[in-house]
């Protein structure tokens, strides 16, 4: 599948934003981090900016962005529609929780309930994003049970790194929290390794033989394409990446997004507050780089069944 930058940015940026809000609610609930107005406001502003920028960027690739509101109508059948509805609905409890916890600074009463609703809806929204991909049977590498957990795991891990980085500015990062985030980051990447292993060893779901029904005669090969230039289907669905490049990019993503991020977080947890700022931001940059490569690969490595009509032998 063609890795469209607007969708890569949308899924990674909004994922981190939603993850950060969930962590903020958890921290407020447990009272681990003193939710000073400055820290709380910073996390809310950055998260909402990431979510909003992501949502806007996802409308850039539409043919008719001015009709985007129509996408809210088919929530009964469409995961894309459900994602839109969930994304908009999530704003309400987030804003109520933000206002309540910042201006009334009461964490243990009514406001925390809005926080819990906000956290729940954040997870639902990220889950809907995952389901958009996981529900597409035409793309076997997406249509697996690991895709939704992966989207949620990366939203939570990148969101946690974001909270740590912001908190470090306010000297408010207990070391244990940075270490915990390192563990979450590594866990998300372990899940990704499991996914890679799964798609590498999975049996092909469809073949050129089943796509044409000509397998009874023998092995099927494309002799002539219908036309000599690229069409929409080949451009959008025919994108392929050489195994060699994919393997290299997987390693880079894992080392930068997983190992380097976790290391920087461990070090940040050991350093006194002022010094933890730099390492926390190194972790943030590593996490962002890793997730962008991961998401690019998620698209680039996925093969669409329609490519069987254009020369692929199996998907």
């Amino acid at each position: 599948m063609n890795p469209a930058y607007s969708v890569i940015f949308f899924t990674t940026a909004s994922g981190a934003g939603y993850g950060a809000i969930v962590w903020l609610v958890v921290l407020a609930l447990l009272g681990i981090v003193p939710l000073t107005p400055a820290l709380g406001a910073s996390v809310f502003v950055v998260s909402l900016a990431l979510i909003t920028a992501g949502l806007l960027s996802s409308t850039f690739h539409l043919g008719h962005p001015e009709r985007a509101w129509r996408a809210l109508s088919q929530w009964r059948s469409s995961w894309l529609s459900r994602e839109g509805v969930a994304a908009l609905a999530t704003y309400i409890p987030i804003l109520v929780f933000a206002v309540g916890s910042l201006f009334f600074s009461a964490h243990n009463n009514i406001w925390i309930w809005f926080g819990l609703i906000a956290a729940g809806l954040c997870l639902v929204t990220v889950g809907c994003t995952g389901m958009i991909y996981a529900s597409l049977r035409a793309i076997p590498r997406w249509s697996t049970p690991l895709v939704v957990p992966l989207y949620i795991a990366f939203a939570m891990s990148t969101g946690a790194v974001l909270v740590i980085a912001i908190a470090s500015i306010f000297w408010a990062t207990p070391g244990i929290l940075a270490w915990f985030t390192a563990v979450i980051t590594l866990a998300a990447w372990m899940l990704k390794i499991a996914y890679w292993r799964q798609i590498d060893t999975a049996k092909p779901v469809a073949t050129a033989e089943s796509a044409t029904g000509l397998g009874v005669i023998g092995k099927v090969r494309l002799l002539e394409s219908p036309h000599n230039s690229e069409n929409y289907v080949m451009r959008e669905m025919g994108y392929t990446i050489a195994r060699k490049h994919a393997a290299r990019l997987r390693k880079i993503a894992l080392v930068v997004g997983g190992i380097a991020t976790a290391l920087a977080l461990v070090i940040a947890g050991l350093l006194p507050a002022p010094y933890a700022i730099a390492t926390s931001f190194v972790a943030l940059i590593c996490a962002a780089t890793g997730i962008l490569i991961e998401r690019w690969l998620f698209f680039a490595e996925a093969r669409h069944a329609a490519s069987l009509y254009y020369g692929a032998s199996e998907v």
Partner: peptide, 13 residues
């Protein structure tokens, strides 16, 4: 709206 998701969902291109 031209979101193209339907073309992703169709296995037959």
């Amino acid at each position: 709206i031209g979101c193209k998701l339907c073309s992703w969902a169709c296995p037959y291109g």
